[in-house]
Amino acid sequence: MMRYLAGRLLRAMLTIFLVVTFAFFVLRLSGDPALLIMSVDAPPESIAAFRQSWGLDQPVWVQYLAYIGHALTGDLGNSMRDGRPAIQLVVERIPATLAITVPAFLLKIAIGVPAGIYAALHRNSLADRLTMVLSVAGFTMPSFVLALLLVLLFAVRLGWLPSSGADGIAYAILPIVTLGAAGAAILARFTRSAMLEVLGQPFIRAASAKGLPWRRVVAEHALPNAAIPTTTIIGFMVGTLIAGAVVVESVFAWPGVGRLLVVAVANRDLAVVQAILLLVAATMVSANIAVDLLYGWIDPRMRQVPR
């Protein structure tokens, strides 16, 4: 188990290293930040001074080694726009993002999982079909369209909720509902098929055949087994808590990490974009490891055969 964990951690570090490297080269080779930040007709001396102060006059591989060295000590460079440490800018925005993604995450689970289970247990009933129709609709609708439709209904027509900004709980409702609805649709569909898969297994028939009440068959045999694949998808959703709200934050002008990313990209603020990429990669990778560990706890079979 320890060996498995060590191997898993090594691969996780490799992934994060790959992301940092990829981000560094893609972003550095794509244009001269000095010319992008200053204007093209700035005096050559000040452009040169800018390059020197950001280390842009060094060869790319020197910049890269310096960047990695700094990254290892927790220094991801300063924002080229306002000179503050990039990591600080990003960390400041995390609470705002979590304030909408965490409630949305709970909403997804609270709606998606029971809906999926109910639909599977009442296969082909009206409720099942309705769940599936809603699920496909939620699946195929872009989040910005759903967001704007909600704004149109609740902010413009009914005037119950504010359409954008972040001045209190009322402002968080529409972003949370938008994120939650899309996730619930995916989760409902997934839970339903996981449940149907398990319900078709011979051990379910065996449990029924030995006279166990259906309620207990479902609770003790079907649900624990269907929980395994469902946990995987929920684990992936944990990984998107930081970065899953880029579009929704932009629609609602919510001051979170996603909006910071869009603004940083538009301003070509390299250090901030890199810091966010690294943060997202770290979140995704940790979530994946957590899911792998959770498997051992949920599924006793995994304890015997470490991959």
């Binding site: 992934t15 790959l18 893609v26 244009g31 970065a243 990313l261 990209v265 966010i276 990429l277 990669a281």
Partner: peptide, 24 residues
Amino acid sequence: LTLIDFQASMPFLIIALAVLAFFG
């Protein structure tokens, strides 16, 4: 397989955003 894992574990929207805005 490593590339596949990498691609699957990163949200593509984030990568796309970075690549697009910086490559013009």
